[in-house]
């Protein structure tokens, strides 16, 4: 970037540089279960200008260790730099860039859909097709729980939008590798 007084076009401001893979990545990051670790991870992303699509944190079978599952867009993020920079955090123990074909990934979403007497059953039928669960029914709304891969959740979202989506919440993906080997 030129740092003189020429006006810069917005295109010029787009960062050049590292290699982009062009696909979605799921990073499974094992971290020490200590205060401030999530701040360090998210702070690193802010500072280096990396964007996270989804992030979920939870305990593992070892209470000293937590797992952070991150999804990132490899078209806009230099995944190689992301993992290398993450590795530099002292509390990060292990990072695995999960191969999509070798990975089981799930996300949970809750949809609150506005319904009336007539559309209520339609939404319930849709939920059934998606193997969703109706977890709350009111006079004017219904809440559906869907678990699955991101594409399934996005497909369901598209369908119920026409009925009036009041709100939606998603957990972010969690993922585990297939087979005997540990993630």
């Amino acid at each position: 970037m030129v740092d003189t007084n020429e006006l810069l076009s917005l295109d010029d401001l787009h960062a050049a540089g590292s290699i982009r893979t062009g696909r979605k990545h799921v990073l499974s990051v094992l971290v020490e279960n200590k205060p401030g670790v999530l701040t360090r991870v998210s702070g690193l992303f802010t500072r280096r200008g990396f964007n996270i699509d989804t992030l979920s944190v939870g305990p593992t079978d070892d209470e000293r260790i937590s797992r952070i599952t991150l999804t990132l867009d490899g078209a806009s993020q230099p995944i190689d730099q992301v993992t290398k920079q993450l590795h530099k955090l002292i509390n990060v123990l292990k990072i695995k860039d999960l191969e999509p074909a070798e990975t089981v990934a799930r996300e949970l979403a809750l949809f609150k859909v506005s319904v009336d007497a007539q559309t209520r059953s339609e939404v319930r039928e849709l939920a059934e097709v998606f193997r969703g669960k109706v977890v709350d029914i009111g006079k004017r709304s219904i809440i559906v729980e869907i678990t699955g891969e991101r594409s399934k959740i996005e497909a369901f979202e598209k369908l119920v939008r026409s009925y009036g989506l009041v709100e939606m919440i998603r957990t972010g993906e969690v993922a585990i590798s297939r087979g005997r080997e540990e993630t």
Partner: peptide
């Protein structure tokens, strides 16, 4: 950056893996 050592191959030795290929592969 794009015109730095345009004819060269790079051997990059560093103890920090994140520096290798950060700015130039």
């Amino acid at each position: 950056l794009s015109e730095f050592a345009p004819r060269a191959k790079f051997v990059h030795i560093d103890v920090d893996p994140a520096e290798v290929s950060k700015n130039i592969p």
